[in-house]
Simulated scan of single mutants.
Amino acid sequence: MLSACSTTPPPAPSPIQQTLLTPCPSALPPLTDGTGGDVALTMSAWASQYQRCATRHNGLINALEKHP
């Protein structure tokens, strides 16, 4: 009787979602006139832009950690 070692190949890594590879914007929307309303709207836009970028960045980190 002959016996042999068998190994199973590691699973192929799943591709990283293209949306996770989108770079963050390099510029923030500028303040236009400095009024309270303008500041509030601009800061809201900054917060939204940061949140979208942070979500992609954290998703990319999680995807890379799953790859061997």
Rank of each mutant, 00 (worst) to 15 (best):
K66L: 15
L20D: 02
L21A: 03
A47Q: 04
W46V: 09
A40C: 08
D33Q: 01
M43P: 09
N58I: 06
T19Y: 11
M1E: 14
T35Q: 02
S14H: 15
L60Y: 00
A45R: 13
L41Q: 13
L41N: 14
G37Q: 04
A63V: 02
P10K: 03
A4E: 11
L20Y: 00
L28F: 11
H57T: 09
Y50R: 08
L21K: 03
T7D: 12
W46Y: 05
A45G: 04
H57Q: 08
H57V: 06
A4T: 11
Q17R: 15
A54T: 05
G59P: 00
E65H: 10
P15M: 04
L2R: 15
T35F: 00
G59I: 05
S48E: 14
D33M: 03
P68A: 08
P9N: 11
P13H: 07
D33N: 07
L41P: 00
P10Q: 06
P23I: 06
M1D: 14
E65V: 12
Q51G: 11
G34P: 01
Q49R: 08
S44W: 04
N62K: 09
T22N: 08
P10H: 03
L64H: 02
L20K: 01
Q17M: 09
I61S: 12
C53L: 00
L28D: 06
P25W: 01
L60Q: 01
I16A: 14
H67V: 15
A45V: 08
A45Y: 03
Q51V: 06
G59C: 02
T7W: 08
M43S: 13
A4W: 08
T42R: 01
A45W: 05
T55M: 05
P23M: 07
A47T: 05
T32V: 14
W46F: 09
M43Y: 08
I61F: 03
P11Y: 04
I61P: 09
M43K: 10
C53I: 00
Q49W: 04
G37H: 02
S3P: 07
A45P: 03
S26R: 07
S26A: 13
S3R: 07
R52L: 13
T42W: 00
E65S: 12
T55H: 05
L64A: 03
Q49Y: 06
P11A: 12
A45H: 05
D38Q: 01
C24Y: 00
H57R: 04
T55Y: 04
Q17E: 11
L21D: 06
S14I: 11
L28E: 09
P11R: 07
T22W: 02
R56K: 03
R52Q: 11
T7Q: 11
L2Y: 15
C5W: 13
L28W: 15
K66R: 12
A40K: 09
A40W: 08
A4K: 05
D38E: 01
G36S: 10
K66V: 14
C5D: 11
P29I: 10
C24V: 02
P25S: 10
S6F: 11
